[in-house]
Amino acid sequence: MSTNTAYWHIWVDTGGTFTDCIAVSPSGKWQRIKVLSSSCLRGTLEARVAPNVWRFRHRWPVRTDVFRGYRLRLPGTAHQPVGVHRVDFAERLIETEAPLDCALPATFEITAGEEAPVLAARLATATPLDGQFPPLRMRLGTTRGTNALLEKKGARVTLCTTAGLSGLVAIGTQQRPDLFQLDIPDPVLLYERLVEVPEVVAADGTVVQALDAAALDEV
């Protein structure tokens, strides 16, 4: 794919813990960004060099200060979040807008409260909070829905299937990890209820019997 266009091209995959981003600039430069899906950047305060200035350690995928206006918090403490004034990556310094009272070293997080894909795009394009994103085309994928099903978290799930074919869900394909296993365990069901509804679609996608919307209302 040619990437020498006026647009940034950004692809993002958001998981339960991490969000991964591949970004290609209009000039064709590639970069990879990895952030927490909680939309925080985490680091360690190592030393105080001035009342509101700290030397810190980090592994952030960026070397441009776009963090003015972010909030810094100390996880696991009662300390109220404070604003971030500037970050100096050359000297490994972070300046806050108010003092911090904490023992060192101290783990900290900074966030702007944006969704993780937005944070990743902001870091990739070096766009500060008060700046406008450059023209970009973003593709977003996520495994959060799959994770919620597998972990049985989130909303309760009802599966609707063609009337008369609900048994196929349990029968499956008859594939098994061990061909000669006698006590075949039941598959883990990702739904709570199984409901048959009147509708039929042929193998080629042709609608043989249209879905009865009134039947769904009863579900």
Rank of each mutant, 00 (worst) to 15 (best):
T3M: 14
T3W: 13
H9A: 12
W11Q: 14
G15V: 10
C21V: 05
A23L: 04
V24R: 08
S25N: 12
S25G: 08
S25W: 03
K34F: 01
V35L: 00
C40I: 10
C40Q: 15
R42K: 15
A47N: 11
R48V: 08
V49I: 09
V49P: 11
N52C: 11
N52Y: 08
V53T: 15
W54M: 05
W54G: 00
R55P: 02
F56H: 06
H58F: 09
R59M: 10
W60I: 06
P61S: 02
D65Q: 00
V66E: 01
F67I: 00
R68Y: 04
L72Y: 01
R73Y: 08
P75N: 03
P75I: 02
G76S: 05
G76F: 04
A78G: 07
H79N: 10
V82N: 02
G83H: 02
H85F: 10
H85D: 07
V87P: 02
A90D: 12
E91Q: 13
E95G: 03
E95I: 00
T96F: 01
E97R: 15
A98Q: 11
A98L: 07
A106V: 07
T107C: 07
T107K: 14
I110A: 00
I110E: 00
A112E: 04
G113H: 12
E115F: 12
E115A: 15
A116G: 07
A116I: 08
P117D: 09
L119H: 03
A120Y: 04
R122Q: 13
T127Q: 09
T127W: 10
P128H: 04
P128M: 12
G131H: 10
G131V: 05
P134M: 06
G141M: 02
G141D: 12
T142K: 00
T143S: 15
T146Y: 08
N147P: 03
N147R: 10
N147Q: 15
L149R: 09
L149W: 03
K152H: 13
K153Y: 02
L159I: 07
T162W: 06
L168T: 10
V169R: 00
G172M: 00
Q175T: 09
R176W: 01
L179A: 11
I184F: 02
I184R: 07
P185K: 03
D186R: 06
L189E: 11
Y191S: 07
Y191R: 10
R193G: 12
R193L: 07
E196H: 01
P198M: 03
A202Y: 13
A202H: 10
A203Y: 11
D204W: 11
D204N: 13
D204T: 08
D204M: 09
G205V: 05
T206L: 05
V208F: 05
V208L: 15
A210P: 00
A214I: 01
A215E: 07
